[in-house]
Design a protein around this nucleic acid. Structure first.
Lengths: 222, 222
DNA sequence: GCTTTCCTTACGGGAAACCGTAAAGCGAGA
DNA sequence: TCTCGCTTTACGGTTTCCCGTAAGGAAAGC
């Protein structure tokens, strides 16, 4: 049983058009689309009030900022808000984002039903995902699992990425303890930070912090 | 006088579909589309041989790698190869890339005719760009000029990027002179390298090398 | 030929980062 | 409460990096 009412939140007009086309191909007539998260949330609320809630939300993750100031600024926040309002709402994420950590959170914390990466054959995948979710299944493509494995050379904890992000932001090592204290992150001792960095470099066979930063940028860890 | 023969190089199927739709709306019937740069180049060559060369190439910048190994891996290289083969070919870049100094290179070195950023209203912009280029004009939206102004004034020389790339590769500063000597790059003195890095950091208001590496990765300078 | 100027290199003091070791904290369990 | 085990911190010695100054060297101009 295919969906009846679908909402598309996607800021790239060109992508939005394609998604709508895919939806139409599946004979779904009651779809709606928006370019801003706040609009999406408003539509969801209104649909509930009028007794015709959406069955499915298809949303991007990153929305570009513009003059139009928004309360909800990205897809993750939109999903959270939407689920609070309508827990049974199915959610399909359609994004160019490839970072496994991000997607992991979406699955575990927000309970999304599917994920399609913007890439070659994404339109076909979108269709497959819609069909799968309509049948009550989840849809997470194989290539994603591959990505998760490939990136597993070392598990960067949020502690690691915090430190690395500070370094990349120009903060000197010996000043990192202050920053961590401000955020109530422990351990905050300089030695602990040194040790942690040393461990990471050793495991990854890096000789310098510069190399580490380059790696993290390449793999979108920060 | 609108284009007659248009080639679309875009790896995201969903985006490709939209671009094709826009093209059709403009009554262009002889369009062709591909998902890989190598295919695009082959089509261009073939079209020349059969006496029906393309008028316009619409291309993305970044193409995702997959099992299919390619000689040409990104849009910039494709444009270069295409222009070598057919100097008169008009080129419109359609990409999500927003900040990069790469765009500057595209305009100055590759002589592209237009640039449309994947964002809200990109489909409408695409249409405007096509009309402008068809009239022999260039199309670079206002928002990009702002970005170009905001862009940092520092020009990274190939010397700079060589050094920075070495750092990002894990080479220690004091070992860089050897590497430069091996490549017959002068100056190779440690002091010169230190001075150079110091200058860059000062101009860009960076406090550490880590921050510099992060910046260069973000802006695809290395 | 001889400055002048600019660029490169050499050197040295001081700061930061690196790394091993030892001490201090802290929770779990007897 | 005390001990055990683990984690965090503190503290040195060493290396590397940072940065100012001065010496060397080549090209341009008079």
């Amino acid at each position: 049983m295919m969906f009846e009412r679908v909402l598309i939140a996607e800021d790239q007009e060109s992508t939005s058009i394609s998604v709508r086309k895919t939806i139409e191909d599946l004979k779904i007539v009651a779809s709606d689309y928006v370019f801003y998260c706040d609009d999406a949330f408003a539509r969801i609320q209104k649909a509930i009030k009028t007794g015709q809630p959406f069955d499915l939300l298809i949303t991007d993750l990153s929305f570009e900022e513009d003059h139009h100031v928004q309360k909800i600024v990205d897809g993750a926040a939109l999903i959270k808000a939407a689920k609070d309002e309508q827990p049974g709402l199915k959610v399909l994420v359609f994004s160019a984002e490839g970072k496994s950590a991000v997607i992991d959170v979406l699955i575990k914390d927000l309970g999304i039903d599917g994920y399609v990466r913007k890439a070659r054959h994404d339109a076909k995948e979108l269709k497959l995902a819609l069909e799968a979710i309509a049948e009550g299944k989840k849809y997470f493509p194989a290539q994603m699992k591959v990505l998760m494995k490939e990136r597993n050379t070392y598990d960067f904890t949020s502690y690691d990425t915090t430190i690395i992000a500070l370094l990349a932001g120009g903060v000197k090592q010996k000043e990192i303890p202050k920053h961590l204290d401000d955020q109530n992150i422990k351990p905050s001792g300089l030695s602990s930070i040194e040790k942690r960095l040393n461990l990471i470099r050793e495991v990854m066979s890096f000789s310098t912090n510069e190399q580490l930063i380059a790696y993290c940028k390449d793999f979108k860890i920060i």
